[in-house]
């Protein structure tokens, strides 16, 4: 039982634009896939549909060798199946405290739904220090997210995804706002996933980052998969030129 996800014949349109055309791909345990492609290729759309935020028009989705009922498939569903996503767009509430942001949607509660705020604050503190290394003055779980820098906010979104110990982590351009040191942390984290038998789908425009951490590359162009290559079969240089060739074909 190596295969975690298998997507077959997936289609998606926004109004009249066909954004995804007949997408087929698999994701295995302990595998890191990089989704590459030009702006507007459909990468974000693909993972939004996979994570339940948007719906495919038509597709067959098999997770853990079980067919998923796409009608009822939503974010809660995806999370229950072990999928955790960090979206490209900001997904934090700026006016809310850090701890509330971390636990949004899966608060630590008692049977009546009341939040154990103390517990959430403790865990958040731990996360802030150990993952984000935010030991700066004034930063604590009760700070509003608006008091964090752009990079720190993105770090927070990633930390949130990591905390909940999921089987598959989907990261849509997670490093764009980060300083070199923080980028290193995120890449390191992705590498450690494999040791814990977890998988990852990474979207990035930085090919050397992608090459550094992934086992496989999927190149998406105009909503279609143009290449699906194992790392062992290609060098960084070759990958770069391949991507360029594909993109140039469409210019």
């Amino acid at each position: 039982m190596n295969e975690i996800l298998n997507l077959k014949n997936a289609f998606k349109t926004y109004g009249k634009t066909q954004v995804l055309k007949d997408i087929n791909f698999k994701l295995n345990k302990s595998e890191v896939i990089s989704l590459l492609g030009d702006n507007g290729a459909g990468k974000s759309t693909l993972i939004k549909c996979l994570s339940g935020l948007e719906k495919f028009d038509k597709a067959e989705l098999i997770i853990n060798e079980k067919k998923v009922n796409l009608k009822n498939y939503d974010i809660k569903n995806a999370r229950d199946l072990g999928f955790e996503t960090v979206y490209q767009e900001s997904s934090v509430g700026l006016e809310q405290e850090i701890f509330r942001n971390i636990f949004l949607g899966r608060e630590i509660t008692n049977t009546f739904g009341f939040i154990n705020i103390k517990k959430e604050q403790e865990v958040s503190m731990h996360l802030l220090q150990n993952f984000l290394g935010l030991r700066g003055v004034g930063i604590n779980p009760n700070s509003k997210v608006s008091s964090l820098s752009g990079g720190e906010r993105q770090g927070l979104a990633i930390a949130r995804a990591i905390y909940f110990d999921s089987k598959v982590i989907i990261l849509d351009e997670p490093t764009t706002a980060l300083a070199i040191k923080e980028v290193g942390k995120v890449l390191n984290f992705i590498k450690t996933l494999q040791e814990h038998e977890k998988s990852c789908i990474l979207i990035t425009h930085n090919i050397s980052h992608a090459y550094e951490v992934s086992n496989r590359f999927i190149i998406l162009e105009r909503g279609e998969i143009k290449a699906d290559i194992k790392k062992d079969d290609i060098s960084l240089i070759e990958l770069q030129s391949k991507l360029l060739t594909i993109q140039n074909e469409y210019q």
């Binding site: 339940g52 935020l53 939503d74 974010i75 809660k76 999370r79 996503t85 979206y87 767009e89 900001s90 997904s91 934090v92 509430g93 700026l94 006016e95 809310q96 509330r100 636990f103 949004l104 949607g105 899966r106 608060e107 509660t109 009546f112 739904g113 009341f114 939040i115 705020i117």
Partner: peptide, 24 residues
């Protein structure tokens, strides 16, 4: 301020898209 329902309310007012993304 202490219940998860209220948490959803706060986030909807703050950033509804984010609340959606977080499965609210």
């Amino acid at each position: 301020f202490k219940h998860k329902f209220g948490n959803s309310v706060l986030f909807i007012g703050d950033n509804k898209k984010a609340a959606n993304m977080m499965g609210i």
